[in-house]
Design a protein around this nucleic acid. Structure first.
Length: 438
RNA sequence: GCGGAUGUAGCUCAGCUGGUUAGAGCGUCGGUUUGUGGUACCGAAUGUCGCCGGUUCGAAUCCGGUCAUCCGCCCCA
């Protein structure tokens, strides 16, 4: 009989136990940051109606980007980000929620795209969004950035330091107005700006001239990246407004305690739904990784679900992406996550099982991760080998003598020292040892 | 969808220009006297050499196709 494959599908992530423990610890810390900051942690459906996920009605086209399927007459798909589902949720629960509404999701996302380095078809992202009705102060944009930085900092021992760069959609809109670009040109130029990092100066210039065919306009756009935004002051009211919003925002970020922030107008965030300021986080120690987190303000996303004007600012941390990349490169030290339990209980024969289980219960009641080796008929050698392999700090040996005297033989697996103790003293030894270890 | 590379034991791979029972290391399991591991030694199991076809007396090895994987592009939160 042919055996079935053991490898997961391409683009799907499987973590080994130690990796998973480390991942879970990171997730716990980041969720903790969000919860303390007053964000409701939501767990929305992974499957949405196709019409919720996409406005495009060209099934073939969107199928290459999403996992789609049909059940009866209902076309549906797996969520590829968290914000679309959240918009639907908020629009559907306007009466139940308090605004500004603060929500966070740490959940799996799905993309149908082809495998590529650092791209997965199933991955975790942590989203955080703040949504307001009719208005939403730009203070919230600053807060979102601050909270992301806190979340990233909470796992800095694994991912290192971070910095953030701020871009502005309104700046480009105003500049395009000023330069009198038509809508096709705006779109194409914007794509070029977004890809500028990847393509390099020459190709960027070429692309601009292809689209614009106007040296003067091309040079104006290029000059943004050379001499910055200042030269566009006093050119139009819209430009002035966009620039002062941006510079004012940098002051706000300081008030919110954000570190390592700077303006970078090449931050465009693709053609996504953003309408205001946008931002991207990168990891200082890992420049090879692409964006660690990104987001911005969106004004129109909820429009398709509700006539109530809802404005949001949100961001996502692509945590699977950075975690897996850092793990594979060896940047994350997993050695301290290899140990599933602190204590292995070795049981010399089924006759001693009852007592062994009471010891196990006592350990667990004392919050000491512990596990009994239940193949009680296995030789001692096999049992202690198991204790060694799971890297238990201590083995507690339970045989006839221990049962008779109501004690346990505790072996320190690192030093090999062994002593006979009451269960209470054994627990004291283990908990004391744990303190020294960390 | 396009281009490049790769597909041999659970894993990482070696098998040169085709030659007869397909290898190593790691891992797994067992053993080196039956309550003491991490080292050492001995031993065992596991492969239709991705799949299909062709060339040949003979193919893991050459050729074609196909599938899969990886890298890049396209696309893109």
């Amino acid at each position: 009989m042919d055996l079935k494959p053991t490898k997961p599908l391409s683009g799907f992530i499987e973590l080994l136990p130690a990796q998973q423990r480390c991942f879970d610890e990171c997730a716990r810390r980041m969720r903790g940051v969000l919860q303390i900051a007053g964000f409701s942690l939501l767990d929305l459906p992974a499957i949405e109606r196709a019409e919720v996920l996409s406005d495009k009605d060209n099934w073939d086209e969107i199928e290459t980007q999403m996992f789609l399927f049909q059940y009866g007459d209902t076309k549906m798909g797996l969520r590829y980000d968290g914000t679309v589902g959240l918009s639907r949720f908020v629009a559907g629960h306007l009466n139940d929620l308090v605004f500004p509404f603060r929500a966070s999701q740490f959940s799996k996302r799905y993309r149908g795209e082809r495998r590529q380095r650092g791209r997965y078809r199933e991955f975790y992202q942590m989203d955080m969004d703040i949504m307001g009705i009719n208005t939403l102060s730009i203070n919230y944009d600053a807060e979102i950035i601050s909270v992301i930085q806190q979340a990233l900092n909470s796992v800095s021992e694994f991912i290192g330091d971070n910095y953030v760069r701020i871009g502005s959609r309104p700046f480009w809109d105003a500049l395009f107005d000023y330069l009198k670009l038509d809508s096709r040109q705006r779109k194409e130029v914007f794509v070029l700006i977004d890809k500028r990092d990847k393509m390099g100066e020459e190709e960027f210039a070429l692309g601009l001239s292809d689209t614009l065919k106007n040296k003067k306009v091309e040079n104006e756009i290029k000059s943004v990246f050379i001499s910055g935004y200042e030269k566009f002051l006093n050119k139009s009211d819209k430009l002035d407004a966009a620039i002062s919003e941006l510079t004012g925002f940098m002051e706000k970020l300081k008030q919110f305690g954000v570190k390592n922030a700077e303006i970078d107008l090449s931050i465009a965030r693709g053609l996504a739904y953003y309408t205001g300021l946008v931002f991207e986080f990168k990891l200082t120690d890992h420049p090879e990784l692409q964006t660690a987190a990104g987001g911005g303000r969106y004004a129109d996303l909820v429009e398709k679900f509700s006539k109530t004007k809802i404005i949001g600012v949100g961001a996502a941390i692509g945590f699977s992406r950075i975690f897996v990349a850092l793990m594979e490169s060896g940047a994350i030290d997993l050695s301290r996550w290899e140990r599933p339990v602190d204590v292995a209980i070795l049981v010399m024969g089924d006759d001693n099982l009852q007592y062994a289980l009471t010891v196990e219960s006592a350990l667990r009641a004392a919050k000491i991760p512990s596990v009994a080796y239940l193949d009680t008929d296995k030789k001692f050698k096999n049992q202690i080998e198991y204790a060694d392999k799971i890297m238990a700090k201590y083995s507690m040996i339970i045989g006839e003598d221990e049962v008779k005297n109501k004690v346990v033989s505790v072996k320190d697996m690192a030093t090999g020292e062994q002593q006979t103790l009451s269960v209470a003293d054994a627990i004291k030894l283990v908990t004391g040892g744990a303190k020294n270890d960390n």
